[in-house]
């Protein structure tokens, strides 16, 4: 069995203990909910976006809900990486991260390989614990749900 140190790296525990960008945003911010029916984890992503289309900018992002250290730290790191970037850049980041997690069916686009995941690379160890991959991608799918449909609910199943 891979060691727990592969999973619970210090940077992950730091984001878990001190999550960044926790809270809510009032309307007209976009709100989307994601849940994992297997474990009952629920996450809410709030997005404040200015502009139109892919070049719209993510001015603010907040995370609500509850979850394990992996889902919470992934969400926290996601907000840090996404804030201030365009929707197109953040979609690319989500593609890159989901590829890192071994999610199938992601079609990489030109330039994806050059994206620097920064702290998020620490979640690479999750790959050795397949049951936990859903935890790591929950917030990302919820983000995509928000920008694709303007809100609603998504599920890991």
């Amino acid at each position: 069995m891979p060691g727990l140190e592969d999973l619970y790296r210090e940077i992950i525990l730091d984001h878990y203990r001190t999550p960044r960008n926790r809270g809510e945003l009032d309307p007209p911010a976009i709100k989307a909910e994601g849940h994992n029916p297997l474990c009952g984890d629920e996450i809410t992503v709030y997005l404040s976006i200015s502009g139109e289309g892919d070049e719209a900018v993510l001015d603010d992002i907040k995370i609500g809900g509850q979850g394990c250290s992996i889902s919470q730290s992934s969400a926290s790191m996601m907000t840090q990486s996404m804030k201030g970037k365009t929707v197109a850049e953040n979609r690319a980041l989500a593609r890159r991260f989901k590829s890192l997690m071994g999610i199938e069916g992601i079609e990489p686009q030109a330039g994806d390989d050059a994206i620097d995941l920064g702290d998020l690379e620490a979640l690479e160890g999750v790959m050795k614990f397949p049951v936990r991959i859903k935890c790591a991608v929950l917030s990302w799918n919820t983000f995509l749900q928000a920008v694709d449909t303007g809100g609603g609910t998504t599920s890991t199943e």
């Binding site: 727990l4 619970y8 984890d41 979850g67 394990c68 992996i70 614990f129 936990r132």
Partner: peptide, 10 residues
């Protein structure tokens, strides 16, 4: 979180 407890116990 129970997931983390279970992981460490495993």
């Amino acid at each position: 979180h129970p997931h983390d407890v279970s992981q460490v116990l495993d």
